[in-house]
Each structure stands twice: as structure tokens, then as C-alpha cells.
Design a binder for these strands. Sequence first.
DNA 1: GGGCTAAATGAGCGGCATTCATATTGTCTC
DNA 2: GAGACAATATGAATGCCGCTCATTTAGCCC
Lengths: 216, 216
Amino acid sequence: MTSSERPRRRGRPTAPLLSQEKITRAAVELIEIRGYTALTMAALARQLGVAPSALYNHVSSKRQLLLWLQDHVNQEIDCSDFGARPWDAALESWARSYREAYARHALLVPVIAVTPIAGSPHTVAMYEKVAAGLRAGGWPDDQVMDVVVAVESFVLGSALDAAAPDDIFDVPGDQAPVLAAVVGARVGRDTARAAFDLGLATVLAGLRDRLKALGT
Amino acid sequence: MTSSERPRRRGRPTAPLLSQEKITRAAVELIEIRGYTALTMAALARQLGVAPSALYNHVSSKRQLLLWLQDHVNQEIDCSDFGARPWDAALESWARSYREAYARHALLVPVIAVTPIAGSPHTVAMYEKVAAGLRAGGWPDDQVMDVVVAVESFVLGSALDAAAPDDIFDVPGDQAPVLAAVVGARVGRDTARAAFDLGLATVLAGLRDRLKALGT
DNA sequence: GGGCTAAATGAGCGGCATTCATATTGTCTC
DNA sequence: GAGACAATATGAATGCCGCTCATTTAGCCC
């Protein structure tokens, strides 16, 4: 135990120990192993074999780190169907992939929802592809972003819901009999998934109708 | 400056200075005046004219305080249309009211999304009313909560979106021409509101269709 | 009136993000 | 090659924050 610490060099190393790439990867690893509460600058530095203050030569703040993380997570979202399949099918697979990615990163949701995308290249590329797909599908320019944001709102809300415990609506039957009954009527299912599926199907059906109505 | 401090008594006061009611009200005031980042236990104690440690005789943790806050905010949500109007009209006014309440309390969203409702009486009452309204509208028991959760997911996602800056999608036109074009096509509008309106109308239309289809 | 309990105070703890002085080394310039 | 400079590490220190604890005081009950 006493000799396991490699001698830490002071001063500039031959090759940089850190980079955006390495820091982001380490953060993802840390989160996957020990969860979001374990993501502290000290723990991250530890993971990288470096002093906490060294991080600040590469990342300006923890918030900045979360933005890197956001862009990294957005890379995992599959939007390849846009341009290859009809807009509604592409929107559906995009939404599913989007939800899955953020169900694993629910703590990022409130961050990404309010952060400008300009500094995140992969994120910009994703929206570009989605916007182009909707436009090509016949949506008028002034409604494309409304559709995107509406679907995205549903997806992010559903990602939060997916992070909730299964028994979140459990309640003593004498206080709220109807609630207890309808909650009881769905036991056994993957409830978050069922709600998402119902909502997504509903949204897509509504959007198809709306676009059709626009054409007349 | 030197004499303005009222002499703080040590030990038990004649009448309690604190209660759940008073603490919650003070927290709401603090948030409305100085925002969520200003909501610290120290600042809250200051607002109440009390030492920080005194709070812990009444509230077990800051998380507990946020749950009180949640129940308080949920009280503001109007679900009076359930039972008075058709289920879809009631769902719409509920969703609008819900979104407005949490647009002002976006930081609570990630907390409420994953917290069991059992300890929050007003919250339970709200869901009871919503569930009863949907059931009375003809929704089968095993789908009521899916509908509620789907709509709620959309509402909470939209509340987060409402807290975002207007220029969140602004991006240099050469990087993402289509995105820049469709973002530009909606300038001037209240964009978050427009996306919510489109999404809500879409969801409601889809739900009406789905319920109709169930009947056949 | 003696003991129990409720409810305040203030000191202090550990964890956190962040800053700063300092050290070391590679690179560029003359 | 020497000297200046920039990049990048270390480790000590700072300040905020949630929270705990020993202590004090006042009301209530027997």
C-alpha cells in the first residue's frame, strides 16, 4: 500500500496528461461506474491520476465539463434515419434513441435544456440533420423548430420519468381510491416505457394529421 | 449599523418562530426575489430571522424543503376543470396551468420527476382528480396513468424549455444552413410558447383519436 | 418545583468548486 | 547554446454550503 503511488512529477510533463477528450472519457467512465453524485472535480482528477487543480488548465469550470459531456452524449443519438426514411419514421427512431441516451444521463437534462448549442459541434450537427429531414418531409420553415422543440420536450420529460422509481405513484388506497386503482391496473409492466410509447405514438399521429391538414 | 440587530434569544422562545408553513413561504419569497441559486439554508434562515441550525428542528434536509416546495407549487396547478368539462378540455387547461407553475420553478423539475408523491398531500389530491376525470371520460383503467405520465412528461420538458434563453438555437449560418434558416423563420414569436402550443394541440388530437379507436 | 421536551444558538466539520503561487519543461529566438 | 516565454503540472488555501452537536432556555406535566 505504501509504495503504490507513482512519483508525481511537478511542473510541465513531457506530453500533456490531459485533454478535452481524456477528461470527457474519464467523466463518462466515472458516471457509469459510480453515478452522477460521484462526479466531483476531485474524483475526476483522481480517475485521471492528476491533481484537481490540473483540470482547470483544460476546462474552465464544472459547468463547462457538463457541456462537453452533453455533446458527447448527443453523439450517441442516432439520427441517421433522417434522409433515409420518411420524416415521421425518422422522427420516431430519433426520439427513441434520444430518450435512451438521456435516461442514462438524467442529471444532464436540466443543463442541456437551457444551454445554447453553438459551442457543441455534434449537437449542432444533430439539429441540422433533424431540421433538414423535417423540411424535406414537407414541414414549412416556420414550424420546423416548433416540432423539434415539442418532440424534444416530450423526450426529455420522458427521460426524467425513466429515472424515477417504479413506485413513485404508490399511495394508500383510502386517501385516493381512483388513483390507487389506476396505478394498480398497470403493475408488472415497464411503466415508464409504456407511457413513453403511448405518448410518442400519440404525438406522431397528431403530427401526421397536422401536416396533412397544412397541405389542404 | 451597530445597533440594528435585535437581541437574539437563546433557548426556547415563547412561541415557535418556525413551522413548515413559515419556512415554505419564506423559501418561495426568497426564490421569487433572488432566484433559485439564492436558496441556501443560510439565506433562508436569514430571511426568517433565525440561525441556520434552527431550521433543522423543523425540516430534516434541504431535499425535504424542496419537497415541501413542490407540494406548495402543485397547489397552484388548476385541475378544477376535471369533472366540470370534457376530459380533453380539462386535460388541456391542467397542462397549461401545470407548465406555467413549473416554468417559474424549473429547478424543481428534476426533483419532482423522481420523488414519490405519497408524502405530498396536495400532489396526491391533484392526481386523484386527474385520474378520476380521465376515467370518467372513458379511458380504461390500465391506460389512465400512461396518459397522465405522457402528458406530464411533455409538460415538464416544456417547462424546462420555457426557462431556456431565446437564442439557444442560434448558430453561425455557414455551419448549419438549414438549422439557421428554420431558426430564423420563427424570430419575433414567443418560441417556447409556440412549441408548447403546437405540441399540446398535437397530443390532445392524438389522444382523442386513440380513445375513439378504443371504442370501436 | 423537578423533570421532560421543544426549539432556539453558535461553534465547527467535511465536502465541494475554484484560485493562486510556484515549479518544471518544451519551444522559439537570437 | 542561452535566455525568454508559454504550457501544464503541484499543493496549499479560500469560501460557500449542507449539516451536526453541545448547550441553553422556556413552557408543560406530574
